[in-house]
């Protein structure tokens, strides 16, 4: 429990930093710091999703029961969701870990986090006491033994990191070939925009214009 609080605290700091990056770094300025920060986001998301998925894989029956305990989905789809969810988490974690199709992986992560937040908020609102089953386990717990607030804060922070990667997927140590084409090209349309560069251009024109 103490470790979880510590990890969630770290996540909050990271999420705030992510929002600062989006708000504070001017568009078009691609700094190495931002690329490394995106790498950190990728790895943190991969870590959470990977651990969450791998802990659920050994016991598919438990995973199904954990989904059922939310009392949201109809019984017809509960087993499918129970089987697929851990696999999706692991698959997305692998993509994020190696940095392949980062934007797609981050978008899937965002969808997962939105679903998790809705699920947890829903059981909290209905007064049901369950273990979220986020890292295996699941099912009813005693009243007052829930950690809904912390779980929602954690998932919202992960959502923020994922959205940052949807917005700017380029990062260091990634397989993606997008690094120099995707948002570098989008953000820095041409070198002519550079003030120092245009100054020299104007200079040349001036000297050429003088004789005529």
């Amino acid at each position: 429990m103490r470790l979880e609080t510590l990890l969630t605290g770290g996540l909050v700091v990271l999420a705030i930093a992510a929002m600062a990056f989006v708000a504070g770094v001017p568009r078009g300025r691609v700094t190495g710091g931002r690329l490394w920060f995106a790498t950190a986001c990728r790895l943190v998301l991969a870590g959470y999703l990977g651990v969450a998925g791998l802990l659920k894989l050994p016991d598919p029956a438990e995973s199904v029961r954990a989904v059922r305990a939310y009392r949201i989905l109809p019984e017809a789809v509960v087993p499918t969701v129970g089987y697929v969810l851990p696999l999706l988490e692991v698959a997305v974690a692998v993509l994020l870990l190696v940095g392949l199709t980062t934007r797609l992986a981050a978008a899937l992560t965002s969808l997962l986090m939105v679903a998790f937040v809705i699920g947890i908020a829903s059981v909290a609102a209905r007064g049901i006491s369950i273990d979220c089953g986020c890292f295996g386990g699941g099912g009813d717990v005693a009243e007052g033994a829930t950690h809904y607030t912390q779980e929602i804060i954690r998932d919202v922070c992960l959502l923020v990191l994922a959205l940052l990667l949807v917005y700017r997927p380029s990062s260091r140590l990634a397989l993606d070939p997008t690094q120099d084409t995707d948002d570098l090209d989008l953000d820095v349309p041409d070198l002519d925009d550079d003030p120092t560069d245009s100054a020299t251009t104007t200079g040349t024109i001036t000297t050429q214009e003088n004789p005529s």
Binding site: L95, L100, T101, R103, L104, T178, T181, D182, D185, L186
Partner: peptide, 17 residues
């Protein structure tokens, strides 16, 4: 170049999906 990169990214994303 941008269009080409977009197309390539689209193909990769589709294949991965």
């Amino acid at each position: 170049r941008k269009a080409e990169a977009r197309r390539r990214n689209g193909i990769i994303a589709g294949a991965v999906l």
